[in-house]
Design a protein around this nucleic acid. Structure first.
Lengths: 140, 140
DNA sequence: GGGAATATAGTGTATATACACTATTATGAA
DNA sequence: TTCATAATAGTGTATATACACTATATTCCC
């Protein structure tokens, strides 16, 4: 029997991440948010007023990644920056529209979370989460 | 005790996928390839001559995603298209340079595979792979 | 053969991601 | 107080990803 060693763990997890993204974006669709935007709003909401660096750290994202993502939310009018002119650190917070969008999205996100739990099983999902965390720590 | 239900499964798997990508790209660095490019070369090599649609299907990628990725490989001179002018279906294959790059990268990729196996354990990695596959199938 | 249906490829636009680099504000020590 | 160092933000460029749409080639039926 030939040893089949061609399956790439990296590509596999990427494809799975895409699949999960598709699921979450599907549930969130009627809110007009993608999961990435939902995540940004959720974090800003709970940390506001927050600057880009702290937000990036909490979201485990590169700061420059966030800068781009925030731009779309600003264009939509979902977030605003209360920092004064001439200062460096931003003070990001949700606008009333942002709060509304987030409120609408939360139950949809919860449905997506439940969908995954129902389909994988609570225990499996817990083990999975722990493993993901361990994987993430491999690069620290 | 407050129930902590705020951890997003989607963001978690995305972050883990990024971490794994970082690991693989690190091992592959001296080959000049990123894991995505390595994957394309590997598939083209084993399927050549291959057209974009079949390649995308095998790689579980959207066809249009692939079109962009292939462009970089063509610019590097790693792949060529043997289809005749005026025909629709492409006939992609590796150039000698592409073969060289792939040969150089394969052992590095194997190191990355082994690194993950060593750090997660063979059985855990197997279970993990099976779960990823199941997750992917949720969207089919 | 001609036209409908299908297969195949590519573009525009958008989100997601990071690295190298630049720019500017804030801070702290001499 | 001034100047070096920190902190903070943003841009250019690159890869990774897909959807909606367009364009062209192929096929197949009448």
């Amino acid at each position: 029997m030939k040893k089949e060693s061609s399956a790439c763990n990296c590509i596999n997890i990427r494809r799975a991440a895409q699949a999960v993204t598709e699921i979450y974006d599907g549930y969130l669709a009627e809110s007009g948010l993608k999961i990435g935007q939902f995540s940004m709003l959720k974090h800003i909401n709970s940390m506001s007023p927050v600057n880009v660096s702290r937000l990036a750290e909490k979201m485990r994202l590169d700061r420059t990644t966030l800068v781009r993502g925030l731009k779309a939310l600003e264009n939509e009018g979902y977030i605003s920056d209360a920092s004064e002119k001439g200062t460096r650190s931003r003070r990001l917070m949700l606008t009333p529209e942002g709060e509304k969008a987030l409120e609408k999205a939360v139950p949809l996100w919860e449905q997506a979370q439940r969908y995954l739990e129902d389909n994988l099983g609570t225990d499996t999902l817990k083990d999975f989460t722990a493993l993901l965390s361990k994987i993430e720590s491999l690069t620290n």
